[in-house]
Nucleic acid binder design. Sequence first.
RNA 1: CGGGGCGUGGUGUAACGGCUAACAUGCCUGGUUUGGGACCAGGUGACUCCGGGUUCGAAUCCCGGCGCCCCGACCA
Length: 414
Amino acid sequence: MLQSQLFTKTRKEAPKDEITKNAQLLIRGGFVHKEMAGSYSYLPLGRRVLENIERIVRDEMDRIGGQEIRMATLQPSEPWKQTGAWEKVDVIFKINSRTDKEYTIGQSAEEIITPIVQEYVRSYKDLPVAVYQIGQKYRDELRAKSGIMRGREFTMKDMYSFHETQEDFDRFYALAKEAYLRVYKRMGLVAKVTEASGGSFTEKLSYEFMVLTSAGEDVILYCDSCSYCVNADISKQKEGEACTRCTGGNLARATASEVGNIFDLGIKYPKDFGYTYKNKDGEDAYPIMGCFGIGITRLMGVIAEALSDEHGLVWPETVAPYRVHLLSLTPDDLEASSAANLLYDALLDLGVDVLYDDRKGPSAGEKFKDSDLIGIPLCVVVSKKTLVEGKFEVKVRSSGETKILDRDELLSLF
RNA sequence: CGGGGCGUGGUGUAACGGCUAACAUGCCUGGUUUGGGACCAGGUGACUCCGGGUUCGAAUCCCGGCGCCCCGACCA
């Protein structure tokens, strides 16, 4: 991508009403545009980041047998009334057509997926099954906040699984847990599996996946020795007390952001919809159901919060909008600009995603500032200074480490 | 939803109740520059969030609305 053609521009200053780092940096870098409180548009750079996050999530869900679908976002009110959610869940957006028919726009999809699976999965031979989607969710939050981290519209991966037995659910839950932890790790984040309330879903505990960040809205207590972690909301223990799950560990306290969760739904939804399958003995039985969420847009915000520095964003390679930011410092110099053009083409030939700052106006300093702000992992500088020896400067955004390489050395990095 | 704060060119700010609403940045022209948001000159851009009211006179004071942010509550 030629940066001279990129329609978004960076900004020196963030809008004054954005306090959180994720919103400030993402707006300044031209990744997102705010439409209203809790609702953002994703611009070229931001859209590419989201796509990369989605790719990782999709990859891991497919790996544990998830089947991707796409459910309707505009949904009938009836199934929501059937389960009681229409009255009980206050974040549901309710809309009326001009003929006064009631609809909702999806805030979750248990009410949609259960009847779909019911139609096809009728035998124990068809179980277990796990189905997921990645799509927009809409929740009538009383207060949107924290930039893109808590909006009224957001992107979520929601997976639903159906099982014959509790044991089989537990087996799949363990698989999903590992997949979730891989998802976060691949994005450069460290998540903790946290015991939490099941909300209005279930009496049982649920598990939340928490990334430690000061921008988070949850408080967790975690053991400094074992992997035990609990949401402070439901913990009977306090910071500094001894861990009850291991010997020698003490509980530490931290703010964190929830980037995923798992609920054991039991047989609530199959019961509500009269969904039974035939078991081995030919009897009708309710499948046990689980739901598994990952906040895609929130992950983008958490990465922006957790991995940025005073100069701007620092994207991990796996989610970065481009892999290389190629800066042509002296585009008016014929020799330098043709060297940059050749390098750009060579990188494209190798299949490397490159943002090429070929702009003629901005000074060298401005290009460096922009590059730091946008946060692409590798910055390659083409200028007369190093070109006299036939070399290029390569800078790693995260560490600041710099190397002077010739063309072959540079291309061999990819 | 309770409490607090804030609404002025695209963005960030200024302006005692009183002159043509100022400055920076951005954007456009031209020139000069090119290793950390460089410089010079000219230009563009605002019904001061909306609606009422007070006043000779309102960006400024009062009332109502709307919007945004923060704290809390809430959070499938």
